[in-house]
Amino acid sequence: MTAQFLTPEELALLSLVQNELVPSYGDLPPAGTLGAALTVDAYLAEQPRLRRPVLTTLRAIEVRAGKTPFAELDSGRRVEVLRKLENADPESFSELVKQTYNAYYTRPDVQASLGIDGPPQPMGFKLPAFDESRLARVRAMGKLWRDA
């Protein structure tokens, strides 16, 4: 699949960033490796209001990274760069984080790792019925309202 909105370079950079935002967990690869960048790209194509904060953050990364490209930094240095960006422009950065979470936690494989079998419908959930005997103490409290 190709990106609809981001350039190939921006897409690759976003993917690297996402790998630091949501690292691997158990058998699950990090968010970028899972393909979250393409999903965020689709959000950007559909929702213009998201473009400014996400692009602002992406374009500031190489500036913050300095002489060494972000892609060549080790994980610890990448995180340092991202923390600085977050402190400098928390609003834009938080939108990028939010869209990464959106892309990651809507994946069925990620949901399965949390014990979720599928979307809420059509199955719903079976829960126990209410047990009225639990109200014995409260019933004995007597009238608690003022008549008027």
Binding site: T106, G118, P120
Partner: peptide
């Protein structure tokens, strides 16, 4: 309604 889709929670934002 989004309830039958894995991305149902996005509906809260959109």
């Amino acid at each position: 309604y989004a309830h039958s889709r894995p991305d149902y929670e996005l509906a809260r934002q959109t």
